[in-house]
């Protein structure tokens, strides 16, 4: 999956600027006092180039899933800009967005929930064709069979229902459905986190093969740092609605500069007993603050070992510190984490 992502002359297929997504819980009663606002995503910016994989990592509540959903208008952006192939998506009507969706697809986390239990696998995979008026009785079944073969499923199972398939197979069905329109970008929302280890490996390999074959760009949303390292070209780390660090994966994993990235890497276990015995973990204090009432300034400051007064007062910008390695921290410092 290696593509040269330092090539800045290419134009991004997906370009996100200052994306903000706030959720306001509306009360159904009139005259009720306005409820709190969830600051899910607060000013994220990133580019996704054709054929590459950008990993989006972070812990629960960091806004990574909302970011992915905002790309498809499954979550409504409060402000900011999302450009697909140069076309602005924010503010598009559902109809106008429909055209875009043929090139921008998503694979969901839950392989058991994301398929309609009342549709056969063949119907589910064919649905995008039907929606976009591209189904013909002559070609449709062939396309479905082809998509199934691409994801390693035997087309003769097209008439079965999802409940007859295992988690890994259902995830393959979900991928086939996303693939059948030949999209340019695939949002992968935790595509393997619900799967067993050995099955997960199969899906990861499949995604790599498909990218090689079709040149699709992936926005890979995951909490598992190992999986993200394995599949990504570049990685963005999110914390409480903001991207705190974004870099080529080698730079990010070998010389992380943001204290949160460092803590995250240090906390993730390694399947290597000797290395585990030698590791010195950075254990963060406390929990992630609530996104309804995020801390002022740098959002990580409440748990950050380096926090100073300035961190409470000024929001650190995401600044490129060379080689496309951008960090949002007042005191960045590269550090090797084992």
């Amino acid at each position: 999956m290696a593509t040269d992502s330092t090539d800045t002359t290419r134009s991004p297929v997906l370009s996100v600027r200052d994306l903000v997504v706030h959720f306001q819980k509306k009360s159904s009663l009139p005259f009720a006092k306005p409820t709190s606002v969830v600051h899910a995503v607060c000013g994220s910016s990133f580019d996704l180039f054709p054929g590459e994989t950008l990993g989006l990592v972070g812990e629960s509540g960091c806004g990574k899933t909302t970011t992915g959903r905002a790309m498809l208008q499954l979550a409504e952006p409060t402000s900011g800009s999302i450009k697909f192939d140069g076309q602005e998506l924010v503010g598009l009507s559902r109809k106008e967005m429909g055209e875009i969706r043929q090139n921008l697809q998503i694979v969901f986390q839950d392989p058991f929930g994301s398929l309609d239990p009342k549709m056969t696998v063949g119907q589910s995979i064919a649905e995008p064709l039907a929606i976009h008026g591209r189904w013909t009785d002559e070609e449709g079944p062939g396309l479905v069979a082809e998509a199934m073969r691409h994801v390693g499923l035997d087309p003769k199972f097209a008439s079965r229902f999802p409940n007859e398939f295992s988690g890994g197979q259902r995830q393959r069905i979900g991928i086939a459905r996303a693939l059948i329109l030949n999209p340019k970008v695939l949002i992968l929302d935790e595509p393997v986190s619900a799967l067993d280890v050995s099955v997960q490996a199969g899906v990861i390999n499949l995604l790599a093969d498909l990218q090689e074959k079709f040149g699709i760009a992936y926005l890979m949303i995951a909490h598992d740092l190992s999986v993200v390292r394995h599949v990504s070209d570049r990685v963005a780390v999110m914390y409480l609605g903001r991207i705190v660090e974004i870099a080529d994966k080698v730079d990010l994993y070998s010389a992380p500069q943001h204290p949160y990235t460092q803590a995250l890497l240090s906390a993730a276990p390694l399947a290597d007993p000797k290395a585990e015995r030698q590791r010195k973990r950075i254990i963060l204090e406390g929990d992630v603050p609530s996104p309804t009432n995020p801390p002022s300034g740098c959002r990580f400051r409440t748990r950050c070992p380096k926090a100073q007064d300035i961190c409470a007062n000024e929001i650190p910008d995401l600044i490129d510190r060379g080689q496309n390695h951008a960090v949002a921290c007042h005191f960045p410092e590269a550090m090797k984490i084992i």
Binding site: G113, D116, M119, P128, I131
Partner: peptide, 25 residues
């Protein structure tokens, strides 16, 4: 349910979501 969201993500209209997914279920 996620499959409804999946269908919306594919570009399905409200009419389609209701008639093809919700009513059958």
């Amino acid at each position: 349910r996620p499959f409804v969201e999946a269908s919306i993500a594919l570009g399905a209209s409200s009419w389609r979501v209701i008639t093809r997914h919700l009513i059958p279920n």
